[in-house]
Design a binder for these strands. Sequence first.
DNA 1: CACATTCTATACCAATCGGTCCATAATTGT
DNA 2: ACAATTATGGACCGATTGGTATAGAATGTG
Lengths: 194, 194
Amino acid sequence: MARPREFDEDEVLQAALRVFWEKGYEGASLGDLQEAMGLTKSSLYKAFGSKEGLFWRVVELYNRDFLGFRLDALAEPTPRRIAERLLHGMTELHNGGRTPNGCLELNAALACSTVTEPIRQELLRNRERFRRELRDRFEETMAAASLPPGMTSDDAASFIISLIQGLAVQAKAGVSPETARQVARAALLSWPES
Amino acid sequence: MARPREFDEDEVLQAALRVFWEKGYEGASLGDLQEAMGLTKSSLYKAFGSKEGLFWRVVELYNRDFLGFRLDALAEPTPRRIAERLLHGMTELHNGGRTPNGCLELNAALACSTVTEPIRQELLRNRERFRRELRDRFEETMAAASLPPGMTSDDAASFIISLIQGLAVQAKAGVSPETARQVARAALLSWPES
DNA sequence: CACATTCTATACCAATCGGTCCATAATTGT
DNA sequence: ACAATTATGGACCGATTGGTATAGAATGTG
C-alpha cells in the first residue's frame, strides 16, 4: 500500500529517552533529538506529531522499562520492606551508572518556563498518584509490621517520596551510589525490621 | 563627573531575584528580567555585564538575605536541634509563601542544558561545602547528644541534605507547608531529644 | 556655558527555538 | 507497469534567545 518506515520505533524512542533524561524536556532541542534518533525533522514529526508528543511516548517507555520495580516494591509484605526495595530500586535507577543520572521525570518536571507548565502539572499528578498508592499500601501492611512509633502511613509515604526526590537530585549532581545507599539505610534505621 | 544612576541597585536586584527564583536561570529571559527590574537592556548590561553576572549578584543576595539562618542552625548545641532548626528554616523559606516556592539555587541548578553547566557546577560546590560544614558540626555536637544509633555524622549530614533537596522539590511542586513540616518531624523521630 | 562623561533608548545582530511545507523517493496493491 | 500512498530530505518560517552598537539625553566639573 505504501512505503514502510525505515526506522524501528522502539529504537528511536530509546534514543530519545536518553536525550530527555540527560537534558530535560526543554534542554533537549529538536536538533539533539534528531541527531540521537538518526531521523530528519519530517520523519520525527510524521511519526510523533510534536516534541511534546514524542516526550509523552518517551515517558510511557520510561514507566514501562524503568519504573516497573515499583510494583514489586509495593507487593512487599511490610512497610520497611516496601520502603527498602523502593529506595534500593530508585538508587539503582538514578545512580546505577547504566542510565543517565537522576530521574527523567524530575529532570523534566523542574523545568521552569511557563510554556512547559502543562507538562510539569501532568508529571506532578503522576507523582502524587504514586504517593497515594504508597500510603495505602503502608496502611495495609502496617498490621504485619508497624511503622516507626508516631508516624502515620501518610507521613511515611510523604517522607519516602521526599527522600526519593532528594536522592534523585543528588544523583543528578553526581553523588556516588554508596552515599545514596547510606542515606537510604540511615533513613530506615528506626523502621521495624519485621 | 557624570550622570548618576537612575535606579537603586539593591531594588532591581530584589526584582531579579524573584524572577530567577520563579523561573530558574534559563527560564528567566532578559525580557522577563527587564520588565521586573524596570530597566532597559542597555542599563542592565551596563550595570551587570551579562545575564550570568546578574545571576551571581542575585545568588549573593539570596545567600545574604535568605540563607543566613543556616548559621544560627549550625550554632545549636545538639545534632537534633541543628537538624530541626535547619529543616524548619528551609521549610519556612521554600514553602512559607512569602517568597516563590522552592529553592532558588536548586531551581537554577537543575537546568540541564550544556551552556549552563558551569553555573550548575558552582552551585553544586556551594551545596557540598555546606554539607561538610554540617557534618563537622554534627561531629562536634554528638558528644552533647548522640545521633541515632548506627548513624555516623557523615550519614546524618547526607541524610539531612537529601531531605532538604527533596523538600525543596516538593515545595516547588506546591506541596503544603503542613506536609513539609510533617516530613521533617517524621525524619527526626529517632533522633535523641537531648 | 562648554565639555567630558555616563547614562538610557532603540534598532539591530546572529543563532537557535519548535514547527511547516513541498518536492522527491520508495514501496505496495492492482 | 501504473497509480496510490507514504516516508524522506531539506528549505523555509516567525518568534525568541542573549548580546551589541549607536545615537542622544542628562549630569557634574572646569
